[in-house]
Computed example of a mutant assay.
Amino acid sequence: MKLYAISDLHLRHADNKQALQTLPAFPDDWLIVAGDVGETLSEMDFMLRTLTARFRQVIWVPGNHELWTMPSEQPSLRGDARYQRLVALCRGHGALTPEDPYPRWPGEGPHRVIVPMFLGYDYSFRPDHVPEDKALEWAFEDDLLCTDEVLLHPDPYPSRSAWCAARVESTRARLDALPPGCSTILVNHYPLRHEHVRLPRIPRFSIWCGTRRTEDWHARYRAEVVVTGHLHIPLTQWRDGVRFEEVSLGYPMQWKHRGGIERCLREILPGPATRPL
């Protein structure tokens, strides 16, 4: 029995959608889908119908793209109302979400729980010399503007930063209540640590990539693995003995050289047999 992960399926791209349909069945295994499935409810439904038929259990966390309010889509849901609609859609297909009890991993090994999280970002992944109220200005200097600024509404919160703060605090409370002997697989769309946001071509995009509030969560909450996406740079890194997996598929031009979509699945558990010294 294995736990796999993938993110950033971006199903509005026909090649990605077709690739997902070619994925073989893994009837004994679980799959994490770490956000950015697509922009519409129909794309989410397609993902859920496709992957719940191929895996024993699917676990989803939202990216920013799922939370966009697309002008062409009806009903036109914004902010938390849209998120709750996505949660209901997942539950209708038997997929787990950040709103469900954290599942215990049923495979071999110690007591582990999988922790799907929805945390957001707050523009704090920026240099120390850039004040919070100048973060967007700093990104604009490199001609960068995330589409979230137009399509990702934080309703009923006054800002995306406020929504992030609320999500971090509610998630922290749940994590603090876990049994002390329990290790975790932490899952979030965005990186938990600023140092892991390495975007050589667009470094100032970092402000839309997470929150410094989670910098120590891998250690504080006994993580065995941290699973994230968003960056479109699949990579395995280690910090403090914890494995960090960026599991993005990405846009067709970014993944096709890696082979078929099956080769883009990242094995989370049991994972590598050895750790680096």
Results as ranks from 00 to 15, higher is better:
residue 62 P to A: 14
residue 106 P to Q: 07
residue 62 P to W: 02
residue 74 Q to G: 09
residue 50 T to L: 07
residue 47 M to C: 15
residue 64 N to R: 05
residue 65 H to I: 07
residue 75 P to S: 10
residue 95 A to S: 06
residue 81 A to S: 13
residue 84 Q to H: 12
residue 92 G to E: 04
residue 99 E to M: 11
residue 71 P to R: 14
residue 73 E to F: 00
residue 69 T to W: 00
residue 100 D to K: 04
residue 56 R to G: 11
residue 46 F to I: 12
residue 77 L to I: 06
residue 83 Y to S: 12
residue 56 R to M: 07
residue 72 S to Q: 09
residue 71 P to D: 08
residue 48 L to F: 12
residue 79 G to N: 01
residue 62 P to Q: 11
residue 84 Q to W: 09
residue 101 P to M: 05
residue 86 L to N: 08
residue 100 D to G: 02
residue 64 N to I: 03
residue 94 G to A: 13
residue 85 R to F: 06
residue 73 E to P: 00
residue 81 A to T: 14
residue 67 L to D: 00
residue 96 L to H: 11
residue 47 M to Y: 09
residue 105 W to Y: 09
residue 100 D to C: 05
residue 76 S to L: 14
residue 87 V to C: 13
residue 74 Q to P: 05
residue 100 D to T: 08
residue 48 L to I: 10
residue 48 L to P: 03
residue 70 M to Y: 02
residue 48 L to C: 10
residue 81 A to I: 02
residue 74 Q to L: 14
residue 96 L to P: 01
residue 79 G to W: 01
residue 58 V to S: 07
residue 100 D to F: 05
residue 80 D to W: 15
residue 88 A to E: 15
residue 69 T to C: 07
residue 67 L to F: 06
residue 50 T to V: 08
residue 49 R to Q: 13
residue 80 D to L: 15
residue 54 R to L: 01
residue 63 G to H: 09
residue 90 C to I: 04
residue 64 N to P: 08
residue 55 F to L: 06
residue 60 W to C: 12
residue 46 F to C: 06
residue 74 Q to K: 11
residue 82 R to S: 04
residue 61 V to H: 03
residue 47 M to Q: 09
residue 65 H to L: 10
residue 64 N to Y: 10
residue 67 L to W: 04
residue 102 Y to V: 02
residue 105 W to E: 03
residue 82 R to L: 13
residue 50 T to W: 08
residue 74 Q to A: 12
residue 52 T to F: 09
residue 60 W to F: 13
residue 94 G to I: 13
residue 76 S to P: 01
residue 54 R to E: 01
residue 79 G to Q: 04
residue 92 G to D: 09
residue 66 E to S: 04
residue 64 N to E: 03
residue 83 Y to V: 01
residue 72 S to L: 12
residue 49 R to T: 13
residue 75 P to A: 03
residue 72 S to T: 13
residue 48 L to R: 04
residue 73 E to W: 00
residue 65 H to G: 03
residue 89 L to C: 12
residue 79 G to I: 00
residue 53 A to C: 01
residue 67 L to E: 00
residue 107 G to P: 00
residue 82 R to H: 04
residue 48 L to W: 03
residue 97 T to R: 05
residue 79 G to E: 00
residue 88 A to M: 05
residue 46 F to Y: 11
residue 71 P to I: 08
residue 68 W to V: 01
residue 91 R to H: 15
residue 96 L to A: 03
residue 62 P to V: 05
residue 91 R to G: 13
residue 51 L to E: 03
residue 106 P to F: 05
residue 96 L to T: 04
residue 92 G to L: 00
residue 59 I to N: 07
residue 44 M to S: 12
residue 95 A to V: 09
residue 72 S to C: 11
residue 89 L to G: 01
residue 54 R to K: 15
residue 77 L to G: 09
residue 84 Q to L: 15
residue 75 P to W: 13
residue 85 R to A: 15
residue 43 E to F: 02
residue 53 A to L: 07
residue 91 R to N: 14
residue 107 G to V: 00
residue 60 W to T: 02
residue 74 Q to T: 13
residue 60 W to P: 00
residue 101 P to R: 06
residue 51 L to F: 05
residue 57 Q to L: 11
residue 56 R to W: 02
residue 107 G to M: 00
residue 49 R to M: 08
